[in-house]
Design a protein around this nucleic acid. Structure first.
Lengths: 226, 226
DNA sequence: TGACGATCCGGACCGAAGTCCGTTTAAGTA
DNA sequence: TACTTAAACGGACTTCGGTCCGGATCGTCA
């Protein structure tokens, strides 16, 4: 509610691009994405655009995904791409949408230790590891899909991760500012950081994984006596 | 050495833009910045450009700092701006350079608790608080000066902060992966995050400060018995 | 079926970052 | 002072993200 103002004021001139993760509640995961109330031609073009974008990525890497190129490859006008996805990161986010929803479904309703059933601390551990490997898998795309700094934390996908993390923290670290702790923990799983550590510093994923587990252990540790 | 390759391969066509914080060692802080071996005209233009950029920011905000606008305001060709600063973030970084060096000087050689003399844990606390408030002061500029994700961690200014933080951590958390811990702690002081928390969530700085102190306490806490 | 209004389409257009290269100039050297 | 050359200059040019708006289309309701 706080940033609703910010978002609408920065909105494109079009009626409304596409609200990512606009599904009413986090509960109805698993349904096919793609905005139900979409005119037939619009829906068709949306699908074509996503397909074209995916093809371009496969052929020329993320850098090859130019708004014009996608439009051309989908045999559609450039304006259409922007109307549907708002901007370039919106398009890239949409490509990640499926995987994002799957992850969400996994930690909301999947089997333990990621899903409910396991003790919170274990879920916390599993959460980080899951995010870590998912991010590593799609690193280039995740990196390119990163919106500008002023919107990074507003995006619903990021919000969902954070909300879940906060919830787990509340069950594990009842004292302590769980909202901010969640931000910090999530920051340590940031795609840009993972990129830097694995590709520029050449650290193995195992080390990042161990660091996550260690971090969780430290953060959730109770006060020493005295 | 690892990313030297990356950097040079992504370098502009010019001989070499301007290496920020290229000063041989962290020890010689306090000297006037501005690349010593610079031809007279180049040095003059550099100064003019920085002055013009600062003026533009004062008048129209960071958004008003267009490469062309700066060039025009400094009565200089556009190419000159790029040759000197590499790209827009390079220019903005240069504007932050002075404050960055001051902070660096403070924690390298200033009075305790920030500088040497205080116990590491206290320096750690003071470090975060100092970074926090410095960032908050120049939030817009810091935000705009943020380079793209693939260079965020490579920049020498960020490296200096991280190196110092790592050093303090080694003295405080001898077990544990201090390099990665430093990354995590720094991430919790990220300008984009501070912007989000203070401006979009309207949290008071005191809360962020408290969260930093709490985080440091948790991370440096020793194992509970048992 | 016909017509109407909301929605969507397309591509010309714009602004700004970044590149290129022919020209100029600072600053040693004889 | 005249010469040389590495360095610097400037601005036209390219590319790409994002905007605009007149015209085409879909879906609906009579």
């Amino acid at each position: 509610m706080l940033y609703a103002v910010d978002m609408s004021s920065a909105l494109p001139p079009f009626p409304k691009p596409e609200e990512p993760f606009a599904t009413p509640s986090l509960l109805e995961v698993g349904m096919a994405p793609g905005e139900p109330g979409l005119r037939a031609d619009a829906a068709r073009n949306r699908a074509r655009l996503l397909e074209a974008a995916a093809r371009l990525i496969a052929e020329h890497g993320v850098a090859g995904v130019t708004m014009e190129a996608v439009a051309a490859a989908a045999d559609v006008g450039k304006g259409t791409v922007f109307r549907r996805f708002g901007d370039r990161t919106g398009l890239l986010m949409a490509l990640l949408d499926h995987s994002a929803r799957r992850l969400q479904a996994d930690f909301l309703g999947g089997p333990p230790p990621l899903g409910p059933g396991a003790p919170p601390l274990e879920r916390l551990r599993a959460f980080g590891v899951a995010v870590l490997y998912r991010t590593a898998e799609q690193l280039d795309l995740q990196l390119a899909a990163q919106p500008d700094p002023t919107r990074r934390f507003i995006h619903p996908a990021a919000g969902a991760l954070r909300a879940h993390l906060t919830m787990l923290l509340r069950q594990t670290v009842p004292d302590g500012d769980c909202d901010l702790l969640a931000h910090t923990l999530l920051a340590s799983l940031d795609p840009a950081l993972i990129h830097h550590l694995t590709r520029q510093c050449e650290m193995p994923m195992e080390r990042l994984e161990a660091a996550w587990l260690d971090l969780v252990a430290r953060v959730t540790r109770t006060d020493p006596p005295g």
